[in-house]
């Protein structure tokens, strides 16, 4: 049983959701946007999530969009990870999403919920970072379009009361060569030891990581080193791993030393696969 009580709202439009958020905030109800709800429910059950009102965004048309518009793919933030995988419209995102949790949970977990997850993994952000995707953010001043790397810095940095309605990705990226590798400790369903997504754009390989440090990231500096064609791959990898943006995680899934070993192997495999050796 969830030990806290909250009110449940299901607005039918983005502006209505934003207005509700303001109104409930001013009543001291600390509202939250509710998408798949899997994290809100599981954390609230063990008293790690507090709110007195949830605003379900699944009834908002923009949030469930799956459409092609002006040379862009539009994916609503309330689409489930299973729906994205089954549609096969964005194979890299579909494959990364299919590595998260298990199939039945993915019938409920949504794209937006994963981007804003309190857990450190947020793996669905990796393909969006690699493809310079643009997020549609609904807030008090209407809907803004912001490139993801301008608002994702370890976590999503949106203003209080704003929510992500959809992500837009240039169609050109959808057919580019990519690699997606997720290594877990033992089980087939688990958080990552190392999760890597990579894409080859105009001969250059872009890479983004989850599970390596305490947040997901894409590093331009590491990409610059890893794409130096004349340097042997092994030495590029050594140098790039020395430029990680934070210490390597050490936890029950793997020590920092083991993660580093796995990371180097995964880098080597993926770069070879994308013709960057």
């Amino acid at each position: 049983m969830i030990p806290i009580d909250f009110e449940y709202y299901r607005p039918a439009a983005a502006d209505e959701a934003v207005r509700l958020f303001q109104q409930l905030s001013s009543q001291g109800k600390e509202p939250v946007y509710y998408s798949g709800g899997t994290e809100i429910i599981t954390l609230a059950r063990i008293n790690l999530f507090q709110t007195r009102a949830v605003i379900d965004i699944k009834g908002i048309p923009e949030c469930s969009a799956l459409a092609f518009q002006d040379q862009k793919l539009v994916l609503g933030s309330a689409l489930t990870l299973s729906r994205i995988y089954d549609s096969n419209v964005f194979p890299l995102l579909g494959e990364v999403a299919a590595g998260i949790a298990d199939r039945t949970s993915r019938n409920k977990i949504t794209l937006g919920g994963n981007l804003f997850s309190r857990l450190i993994y947020r793996e669905a952000v990796l393909p969006l970072l690699l493809t310079d995707s643009v997020l549609l953010i609904a807030g008090r001043s209407g809907v803004k379009q912001i490139q993801i790397d301008r608002i994702f810095d370890r976590t999503m940095q949106v203003e209080k009361g704003d929510f992500v309605a959809a992500a837009m990705t240039d169609l050109n990226y959808l057919s580019m060569r990519y690699a997606a590798v997720k290594k877990r400790k033992i089980a087939e369903i688990d958080y990552p030891l190392v999760s890597l997504a990579a894409i080859r754009v105009d001969g250059m390989i872009r890479l983004a990581f989850s599970g390596v440090c305490a947040f997901p990231f894409r590093s331009r500096l590491m990409e610059e080193i890893l794409n130096r064609g004349r340097q042997p791959l092994k030495s590029r990898i050594e140098e790039a791993v020395g430029q990680l943006p934070a210490p390597i995680l050490s936890d029950i899934r793997g020590s920092a030393e083991y993660r580093e070993y796995v990371l180097k192997n995964v880098l080597s495999e993926s770069i070879r696969e994308l013709g960057g050796a």
Partner: peptide, 10 residues
């Protein structure tokens, strides 16, 4: 028609 874990649904 889709499997859902009913402990993850309100």
């Amino acid at each position: 028609g889709w499997p859902q874990k009913s402990c993850l649904v309100l």
